[in-house]
């Protein structure tokens, strides 16, 4: 029994190490400054992933900018305003449901709604908005968790001075949940970097270099989509592995950052709030 367990744990470990080593071995030789800093051309045949890098950055920024107010706002509603438990249950069930929907379905509905119905066509912005819906539950959850740790006594203290609800939230509650929002953003960034199915039909797979605002309204491939296109449709495995290696470095980095942040914030909170949460 113990052996089986040990083997299973070993497989898990071996898989990730194997994947990392393999992708790095195949991909790192292909990473060059030229690859990172140029756009691709057909004549002469040349591959550069600068546009894909820029598109990825654009889509991350655009998604976070829209997602943070929506997700944090929803969390604030649930934790601070909502009094009707049924409404809370419905909203939380909806969030659960959203987090279970596969990304291909988001891609499809994003295409129908943002690209066609809202007239955004295939564009980074349409892709970003699709990702916003996808990642909403996660940022909601992290914000909610950290709102729960803001001591009730802060709210009481502010209310007792005659502050209105909104002032209490803005001045006393929100500063206390910034950590949750940041953690949520980092997690979302990781997920956006890895997302492909939802973007294929919403953001498209163009490799043109644009400025930020131009880019938002034009189609563009992110790194993951570019990887897919190079590997599956163009047979450019060198470029695909190079992108895979970059993606691995980025996602590993971001995931460790998220873990570190979580630990760091927990420690800070333990030092920062000396009092226990008191509830009458």
């Amino acid at each position: 029994m113990k052996t089986i367990m040990w083997i299973s744990a070993f497989i898990t470990c071996g898989l990730i190490i194997g994947i990392i080593v393999y992708v790095f071995a195949k991909g790192i030789p292909f990473i060059s400054w030229d690859l990172l800093s140029t756009s691709p051309t057909y004549i002469p045949p040349h591959i550069g992933i600068l546009p894909d890098i820029m598109n990825t950055i654009y889509i991350v920024i655009a998604s976070l900018v829209v997602m943070v107010p929506l997700g944090a706002g929803a969390a604030i509603y649930l934790e601070e305003y909502a009094t009707n438990q049924k409404v809370v249950a419905v909203i939380e069930y909806a969030a659960e449901t959203l987090s279970g929907i596969p990304s291909i379905i988001y891609g499809l509905v994003g295409m129908l709604f943002f690209c066609e119905f809202a007239g955004l066509r295939t564009s980074i912005l349409a892709g970003a908005l699709t990702l916003v819906i996808m990642n909403l539950p996660s940022i909601m959850r992290t914000t909610q968790e950290s709102l729960k740790t803001v001591p009730q006594s802060y709210r009481e203290g502010a209310f007792a001075l005659g502050a209105g609800k909104w002032r209490v939230i803005r001045t006393v509650v929100l500063p206390g949940c910034v950590d949750g929002i940041i953690t949520g953003c980092v997690l979302a960034t990781g997920r956006i970097l890895g997302e492909s199915a939802a973007l294929l039909f919403t953001a498209g797979f163009a490799h043109t270099l644009n400025s930020f605002f131009e880019g938002l309204m034009s189609p563009g491939a992110t790194l993951t989509v570019a990887l897919y296109v190079y590997a599956k449709e163009q047979g450019e495995f060198g470029a695909a592995f190079a992108i895979a290696a970059i993606l691995m470095i980025l996602t590993l980095g971001i995931n460790s950052l998220a873990m570190w942040l979580e630990r760091h914030f927990r420690k800070m909170r333990e030092q920062g709030y000396p009092q226990e949460k008191t509830k009458e």
């Binding site: 006594s153 802060y154 203290g157 007792a160 001075l161 005659g162 502050a163 500063p175 709030y273 008191t278």
Partner: peptide
Amino acid sequence: EVSELRRHIGMVFQKPNPFPM
């Protein structure tokens, strides 16, 4: 107005609860 009332009738709590500022 509740906020007016609370301005006139202040409160000090059992556990000191200064804001984190």
